[in-house]
Design a protein around this nucleic acid. Structure first.
Lengths: 186, 186
DNA sequence: ACCTGAACACCGTTCAAGT
DNA sequence: ACCTGAACACCGTTCAAGT
């Protein structure tokens, strides 16, 4: 007689994401995930091919949430204002999900990398704002400049790399505004 | 009778850095480092307090090399040209040391983080160029904008996050030039 | 069809014993 | 003073056996 599942993929991914958030990638041990969903470790392999794939699923979950946050941030009125709103939403998301966020742009083994189309979708709002600002011919380059700066900023922040004093919030606003000016070709 | 050391801290750090470069942080196993320097694993602990500290020493080694590369890149003639030269040197370094580079701005446990003063020294050249460009009152913010963008760009590149086509080299040059314009307050 | 216990091949690290 | 072998407490993963 078939036994009903005692856990589920969503429960496993959620548990894994919690573990990563609280203790980083090292804390993501299959045995601990199993504990969290109240199952023996080998049972996890009925839902997931292995730890690498679980990491991938967690990253994809995070990327989906990031996309929602970015989409919710823009108003569509003024591209310069939208750029600032996107940057702030991006940073807020990273601050609220530092452990999971760190995985998005970290060099992971092929098996743990998120589906590229998900990353593309998450970046779509930035691309549209970049196009409104910089024009169609420079849209992609402008979007990459914005994303690179925003990611680099929060990555350094989360890694504790800003150690020379000064106001971090102001530095972020400074960057967002200067980038808005620099990319505006209207 | 005292036994002469069969290995050394520099040999251990070099071996560790090689392992990280070829197989990432996961490849940095104490047993494999021990193999590389031809010693039994427990002997490593006479030179290093543990794996965490070894990671820290490796990161500090890399940061020192990055600093040298950046210092060698500037000519001091024109700040805009220096900014481009710094950005290119930064990116070249990351491409040549992708495994080790990834560690610099990754969120590491406290015990593995590099000495903050080393990071400061590595960033000093960028700070000076930023000051020449943006003026003393905005030097730190400008330096952070430049560094964030450059790091974000190569981090995304190394993570394989640029998947929408387009020319990556041109996107980098585009960003460097626009940033130069945006930060120039002379 | 899903879960389990036992097992395998790995880890980092400790420590008493050797030279 | 440094190195070693043996051991401990962990990993991820596999697999035959249970229900």
């Amino acid at each position: 007689m078939p036994t009903p599942s005692r856990t589920s993929l969503v429960a496993i991914v959620a548990a894994g994401r919690r573990l990563i958030e609280s203790e980083g990638l090292t804390g993501l041990a299959m045995r601990r995930v199993a504990d969290e969903v109240e199952v023996q470790p080998p049972s996890l392999y009925k839902h997931v091919t292995g730890r690498s794939e679980l990491i991938k699923l967690i990253v994809e979950d995070v990327v989906g949430d990031l996309r929602s946050s970015l989409n919710a941030a823009v108003t569509g009125s003024d591209p310069r204002a939208d750029l600032v709103a996107l940057a702030e939403a991006f940073r807020r998301f990273a601050h609220e999900n530092p452990g999971a966020y760190a995985l998005i742009f970290t060099p992971l083994p092929e098996k743990s990398r998120p589906d590229p189309t998900l990353l593309t979708k998450a970046g779509d709002q930035v691309l549209r704002t970049a196009e409104a600002l910089a024009g169609a011919e420079h849209a992609l380059e402008a979007a990459r400049t914005i994303t690179a700066w925003a990611h680099g900023f929060v990555a350094m922040e989360l890694a504790g790399a800003f150690r020379m004093g000064g106001n971090i919030d102001e530095a972020f606003t400074f960057g967002a505004e200067r980038l808005g000016e620099a990319l505006d070709s209207r």
